[in-house]
Design a protein around this nucleic acid. Sequence first.
DNA 1: AACCGGGTGTAACACGAGTTACTATTCGCC
DNA 2: GGCGAATAGTAACTCGTGTTACACCCGGTT
Lengths: 353, 353
Amino acid sequence: MHLKRVRMVDVAQAAGVSRTTASLVLNGRAKTIAAATRQRVLQAAQQMGYSRHATALALRTGRTRRIGIVLNEPEDFDEHDVYFSTVLAGITKGALSQDYNLVLHSCHYMDWHELYSDILSPTADGVLLVGRFIQDPLTPALLDAGFPCVCISYQVSHPDCYSVDCDNIQGGYLAAQHLFQLGHRQIAFLYPGETVRWGRDRLAGAQQAAVEAGLSPPSFHLYQWPDDGNMPSEASIHAAVRFLQTCRPRPTAMICCDELRAQSITECLPSAGIRVPEDLAVVSFNSTEQSARTRPPMTSVAQPLREIGFAAVEMLVDLIEGREVAKRCLRFPMSLDVRESCGARTIPAHSVR
Amino acid sequence: MHLKRVRMVDVAQAAGVSRTTASLVLNGRAKTIAAATRQRVLQAAQQMGYSRHATALALRTGRTRRIGIVLNEPEDFDEHDVYFSTVLAGITKGALSQDYNLVLHSCHYMDWHELYSDILSPTADGVLLVGRFIQDPLTPALLDAGFPCVCISYQVSHPDCYSVDCDNIQGGYLAAQHLFQLGHRQIAFLYPGETVRWGRDRLAGAQQAAVEAGLSPPSFHLYQWPDDGNMPSEASIHAAVRFLQTCRPRPTAMICCDELRAQSITECLPSAGIRVPEDLAVVSFNSTEQSARTRPPMTSVAQPLREIGFAAVEMLVDLIEGREVAKRCLRFPMSLDVRESCGARTIPAHSVR
DNA sequence: AACCGGGTGTAACACGAGTTACTATTCGCC
DNA sequence: GGCGAATAGTAACTCGTGTTACACCCGGTT
């Protein structure tokens, strides 16, 4: 039942030439081949529906024209986590424009060594590592092996590390500046703690805004949420609400570095006697469609995730094809989608798209 | 800077044997090889960090251990369309358990012929085609070529077509049955029309429920929405609302075959003087997190998308590896997540997860 | 006739692996 | 001591392609 593949040698035979000649013609290296012969070969190829055997080509050239993608977990596509799908949308577009295919490396997070050798097989010409954890041994190992890598939304300290990220410092600055301009002075800052780089950076940006607003030394009411994965537990949400209730002096605003948490917390606030935005203004991060649909619609700092994915592909392909890459770390500015959770009037906001 | 790869011949040399011997040992075909020699080879391989060259292996064996995925559009990962990411979550899990990698074929929808030859390169051992359109020429072409395919959420009439889908007839039945049990008799049915199979099937199911409820001949107020892609246009939403307003006899309930549309329409209803659920009970399809977050939370028929993705991988791998596949079309039952948009009290619903 | 040189095309090798058929050595047994 | 069988290992081919070095032909010049 299986149709036999048409190989180059079949085309050559049909055109009455050697395989070498066919190869030269089909690769445009046909300087020394007579025009008539070339036509014969091209026509035969066309007619027989010939296309190169990808694997053989890859073996010979050492290039697969594929880009690998490593996510943190097999479950990363969970509908709850819009982050990966959006970055992936950008990556897909980038790969399309560069004429590369994408490989999703399937692997449990833990057995990084298996993943390591799968990548170095090599299954692809380079790999995009999406938002891995700082302690992850995989990235340095790949870099040590000299394998082309681009990190998305994180970076490691290694001379060969290239990365694309959003400018979290500037993002934190935006969030805080907005609140300061609205007159807030007591601000709760909810984040994953200093160990997570984007958490650290966003806080740093917020503190910078505080300094510029004349609040020195800058002081936020810090709350570090427990490390419980993408889906925050109910207990962790309640703990955050309790923090907001008991914190003194009472905060009039909160910056929450995660949209999903911000949303869950906000939903619990009314029953804790806290109204949004009257008693507590809220700014979250990662402005997605979700933020527009909450009550009240939530002001949120947006990451340009598609652009990040797209740029990461571009950078990786430059690396693969040996072109010079100007900056080791590309940073995209974040933007503030002003909605209603801060009591500011709704300005036609920078569209999410 | 690039570390030279360790090849099998290097391992063999280090162990003082021929490459053939090394190959036999490393593939467990070492029946005729002395235990001592085998140990030497294994140890050398271990020590030098040897791993097979994936491309060479694929060329020789004719198996890439990759599964291709074809989506409709490069933009399918858009955050608006949770469908693909959820199916992909299931596929990822399936691929992981079967020890296959995944290839995302990047391609514009239109130039199907380019995609066709990319698939037949072959980039993967088989391909999952996710929710393509009926008119799509790609699927029959691949089937004609004898390439292993599994269709997800659609099917074509071809003797070799294998597919995994949810049972849309039963889903339509569930939706209508729920409304009939609540006493509704005048029901608007919003769907993409007869040309889209799942639309047709859901209607058929609903009609079956009507017959069983003693309403014969079954009559719904049919509304066919225009084909405007995943994101419904504002105009199309308004048109639907107008339909609900002007339709006589006045419907007391609506079944909308798409969650996103149902949601947008529901948001417009108050301003049209229609309250949900008092004036109009609403059942939608594709129950995702979104449905739980609307006001009121929306009753919706859920597709087991993860299970579908997972099963599709299983089926495809069976096909690839030449095992017998019992059923040509695997159908998963849908389930009803009862929320508040029908006025039924909230029953602890079948969890989305 | 011998030599040169441009125009055409091909034989042969390489990429890194799996597999088959065959050689070489040792062992057991009569 | 000789013969067959079992044991241990390898040369040579294959997968489908890109590339390099070379062979051949033919016309023109010395």
